[in-house]
Design a protein around this nucleic acid. Sequence first.
RNA 1: GGCCUCAUCGUCUAGCCCGGUCCAGGACGUCGCCCUCUCACGGCGAAAACAUGGGUCCGAAUCCCAUUGAGGCUACCA
Length: 483
Amino acid sequence: MVRVRFAPSPTGELHIGGARTALYNYLFAKQQGGQFIIRIEDTDQERFVAGSLERILQGLKWLGLTWEEGPDVGGSNGPYVQSERLSIYQEQARELVKKGSAYYCFCSTERLGELRKSQEAQKLPTRYDRACFNLDAEEVAARLARGEKATIRLKIPGGTTQFTDLVHGLIKVANNTLDDQVLLKSDGFPTYHLACVVDDHLMGISHIIRGEEWLPSAPKHVILYQALGWEPPQFAHLPNVLNEQRAKLSKRKDGEAVWLQTYQNQGYLPQAMVNFLVLLGWHPQDDREIFSLAELSQIFELERVQKGGAIFNFRKLNWFNAEYIKKLPLVELNQLLQPYYQKINGAEAANKDTTKLTEVLRSRLVTLADSIEQAGWYFAQELALTPDLLTTKGSTAAKAKAAQLAATASLAEVGEWQITELKQAMAKINSAGEFTRGELLWPVRVALTGQRQSPDVFEVAWALGKNETLKRLNYASKVLAAE
RNA sequence: GGCCUCAUCGUCUAGCCCGGUCCAGGACGUCGCCCUCUCACGGCGAAAACAUGGGUCCGAAUCCCAUUGAGGCUACCA
């Protein structure tokens, strides 16, 4: 049974890279008919951020991911929060000491800091010097009994360690390049390395799919599995998501652009986000690019994951989002747009049927939030018109006024307020060919929107409705008459 | 400094494992044309890449080595 997990730390918002890692885990599990588990790695007491866990889970749900086991839904392998599993890690750490695979270390952070500094100065590898490695059992027991603070470190054996990574292939390192990793901190909390290995084993995780930044510590994890007498799971290390400078996307360098939440707030659709994210480091066999989560759950393959990092290209995200906005059922899009319309027009928008407006806007929206700028004309009480604005390039105000009057008269006659009818009505005016299309349509469109750039005249008039259209046309005539 | 990883159009990538069908395919972006009252949408088209140097081979984007470049890790953070 394939069982994978996404294990975020509640130290901030859900990161774009984290979201992609979660997505890949989910897709692999679904494709394999396996299970997806959420585990919370809150072993860093100092970096804990309240509310972070809830927002991370919310972000995953927004993407459409679901999990079989996790802190919110429970499961038979819980608890799924590491701070609630402390005794398990402590026991395993002591067991390792007993077996001779780990040892107590009493070195202070100060000494460790100085050691590192001097190693750096001498351009030596920065590794623990094993000062506490040969302490005899009695001394250790005595110092522990005295209540001295101690960590437990993994004793890295000689030789080499290797494993096969599902995306990178064979990874082989000489053990003497590895540090004696702290497994249990002096506050009794485990480090990531211990907690992760213990939990993945106990929770029956079959595949560890995580970011590439873990690749260098994977051999230590393999050694830990061996020391514990456990069979290591399969590993798959995903390439990083990069910024324009090709550096790993990070809060410090890239600000809020690294949070999934940011895109959610800006009006990106989860379908677009999923589609964009999945292609950032994975590619199907053919040239298709548009996929639903359900489709991806059928065809996702770890074998086709890229080895090199991928730049987060927001232009492509924009394209996906526009595509999905165009594909969305009209009623649904209109629903999603309501909060934005209300930002323009307050609660009044809630009383209007904006379906037609939505239909007119849909091919122009990149994000839902774009509607705020683009729907202004629809809700405007009075447009700021001038004769100059109402006159198309190369024409005259007099001609604009003539067009205006003719259009008003003709549109007033229209019975069924449909786009084809509107087109016919306008065509009738110009049967003699006295106006160019621009001379006729520009003044009308501007009268209705007050803008040099807007959707099509007929669409605008259709969305506005007959009464509002005629009302605006009359107002524009007054503006031109005042000339 | 040490260790690890990676390297095809500006970007995401197909092809690489199983060398010839690749004077390298798709998408985003860019540019041009068409549609057109404006803005979008849509349609058509164009420019644009195998990091470098060695090998192996009749033949290399594909295999090997080196170089260069990029990234990651190097905490009692994850």
